[in-house]
Structure formats: structure tokens, C-alpha cells
């Protein structure tokens, strides 16, 4: 497979992107040409995407093509990410992060991973980012009238921007080179027949048959010994048992298929049940840890401790009296 993008164009774009990011990063002197940086960086990203698009040939293609959405979402994601790392105000950075998440969710949709796309929006944009925003509100000084003065020194000044940017883009260039060169040679894994899962969902088949009106009253889908429905995938038919005990083969509805959510669900709960448990435990521990860490530590001197212990013991004694 020939290369997706000319290596020289890639390296040039990387260098351009690096300069752009460098310019866009916040500076101590306040005279940071952020706009210029953003433009240069976008230019670099555009060059790469253009080159890739030319290769793909879908950009100027006629008719419905998801590739347009790909470019839109990709640009959105990269641009938002750039703003996340360059915006001096944490609140705005967080909001740009939400934008980048939304763009990523769009990319997920193009990859027909609907469940992941919505989960990402709900969990990341809905929960995690709200937490971030709370903490940003909690952990920043009270804002003054002057917006510039409200920014802290550590927000306005990037640290070692040149080295960081250089190493980052060298990384990207090398990584991209390897990716673009090696991908075509990757042996394809045998595809999993997602539709085979249909046999494991007899209730869904029954509901679909009922909706299509092909299921007689009192009939049920027959099971084999594993509890699976007897589906003939080649003929797209399923065997049902009528109310009088006779079996009959009926065609499956046309639009009946396994959704992405169902596939993810089967994969998670059937193939990785232990991992699910572990993930639950991690979440529980994180919750406990967060509770313990953020608890308000009350500093008491010795006198106060004594007073409190006396009070406590008196209460206990009282409790003992009333509670024989």
C-alpha cells in the first residue's frame, strides 16, 4: 500500500504545526501572538488533512459521504485541543475540552460506535468536566475587575515551551511516519460476525416478529439446548413453535439486526465480566479516596480534644443510662 501522505509534506506540516503551537502557547510578557499561532497551527493541520483527503479522494467526491463529517470533526477536535492547551483561563480551557469531546464523539459516530459516542458525551462532558469546573471554581482566587490581573502567573506563562513542543512534534512525526507506512501491511484479524449474536436474543426476535405481524398468537421462538434461538442466518429465517406445539419457520424482519450497544454489551458482560467487576471496585475506591481526601481536617489543640472527649463520654454515659 502506498503512503497516505508524502513524508516530506508530513514533516513540513509537523514543523509548521510546532511553530504554530509554540506561538499559540501563553507567554509571560503577555504579548503572545496567539491568534497568529492558532492560524499557523490550523494551517499545518489543514495541510495534513488536505493531503490525506486528496489521497482518500472523498473530499470533493459527489454524493453522500461520511468523509466530510470526518474532516469537520477532526478539525474541530484538533482545534479545540489546541485551545485547551493554549487558553490561559482554566474555565475556558475546560469548555474547549468539552468541545473536543463532542468532536471526538462525532468521530466515534462515524466509526459506528454509537454507544461509545453517547457514553463519552454523558460521562466526560456531563460528569467529569462538571467536576473540573467545580474544582476550577473552588481553587482559583477571587476574580477582580481587571481580567488580566485575575490570571495567575502560572497560568499566563508556559514552561519550557520550545523543548516541549519540539519533542511533541518529533514524536508525532515519527509516529505518523510509522503509522502511515505500516498500516497497510497489518494483517487483518478475522472479523467477528456480529449478527451471530442475534440467536442469543430470542426475545428481541419475538418482539420484532410481533411488530412485523408474522408471529401468530401464542407462538414462541424455539430454543436449542444452549438456550439460543434456532436462526438460519443464510436464509434469514427463524424457527418458531406455535401454540399447538407444531414448529414453523418464519422469515426474519428485514431491519432486524444487532445494534452497536448490544454488541458492546455482549462483549463487556460475556467476554470481560471480571474486568467489569474490577472497574467497579476502582470506582468505589476512587470514591472513598476522594471522600477521605477532601474531608475537612479540623485542627484541635489538647484542651479542645479533652473537652470534646469529655463531652463525648458524657453523652455515652447518658446513652447508657437511657439505654439499659
Amino acid at each position: 500500500m502506498d503512503q497516505v501522505i508524502n513524508p516530506l509534506a508530513l514533516y513540513g506540516a509537523c514543523a509548521l504545526g510546532a511553530i504554530g503551537v509554540l506561538l499559540a502557547l501563553p507567554r509571560r510578557d503577555g504579548k503572545n501572538p496567539q491568534i497568529l499561532g492558532a492560524v499557523v497551527a490550523s494551517l499545518a493541520g489543514g495541510i495534513v488533512l488536505l493531503a490525506m483527503g486528496l489521497k482518500a479522494g472523498g473530499l470533493f467526491g459527489i454524493g453522500y459521504s461520511p468523509s466530510v463529517y470526518f474532516y469537520v470533526f477532526a478539525l474541530m477536535a484538533l482545534g479545540a485541543s489546541l485551545r485547551v492547551i493554549t487558553h490561559p483561563q482554566p474555565v475556558y480551557a475546560a469548555l474547549y475540552f468539552v468541545l473536543s469531546i463532542l468532536a471526538t464523539a462525532g468521530l466515534f459516530l462515524i466509526l459506528s460506535a454509537e454507544f461509545m459516542a453517547f457514553a463519552l458525551v454523558i460521562v466526560y462532558a456531563g460528569a467529569i468536566l462538571i467536576t473540573y469546573l467545580f474544582v476550577i471554581m473552588l481553587a482559583t482566587q477571587a476574580p477582580t475587575e481587571d481580567l488580566e490581573n485575575a490570571l495567575t502567573e502560572y497560568d499566563t506563562a508556559a514552561r519550557e515551551p520550545v523543548i516541549a513542543t519540539a519533542s511533541g512534534f518529533v514524536l508525532l512525526a515519527v509516529l505518523s511516519t510509522l503509522m502511515f507506512r505500516g498500516v497497510g501491511e497489518l494483517p487483518k484479524a478475522p472479523a467477528v460476525n456480529g449478527q451471530a449474536l442475534l440467536a442469543e436474543m430470542p426475545r428481541k426476535i419475538e418482539a420484532a416478529l410481533l411488530a412485523a405481524g408474522t408471529l401468530p398468537g401464542g407462538a414462541k421462538v424455539t430454543f436449542n439446548s444452549d438456550g439460543d434461538a434456532k436462526v438460519d442466518f443464510a436464509a434469514r429465517t427463524v424457527e418458531i413453535k406455535l401454540a399447538d406445539g407444531a414448529t414453523k419457520t418464519v422469515p426474519l424482519p428485514k431491519d432486524l439486526s444487532v445494534t452497536n450497544t448490544e454488541m458492546v454489551g455482549f462483549n463487556l458482560l460475556r467476554d470481560h465480566p471480571g474486568s467489569i467487576e474490577i472497574a467497579g471496585v476502582i470506582l468505589l475506591m476512587a470514591m472513598l479516596g476522594a471522600v477521605v481526601l477532601s474531608r475537612k481536617q479540623v485542627q484541635m489543640d489538647e484542651d479542645a480534644k479533652e473537652r470534646h472527649s469529655k463531652l463525648l463520654s458524657a453523652e455515652l454515659a447518658q446513652g447508657a443510662e437511657t439505654n439499659p
Binding site: 519533542s167 515519527v174 509516529l175 510509522l178
Partner: peptide, 23 residues
Amino acid sequence: LHGYAAGMAAGVAVLLFLVFMLT
């Protein structure tokens, strides 16, 4: 913190670069 992170990133970059050169 940054020093360590930069070290890690630079290390990964160097490793990848080595792979790149070798392949």
C-alpha cells in the same frame, strides 16, 4: 513534575525515532 514528564516524552520520542531509523 514537568521535568519527569518531559523526560518520559523525550524518551518515548527517542525510542520511536530509533525504531524509525532501524526500520
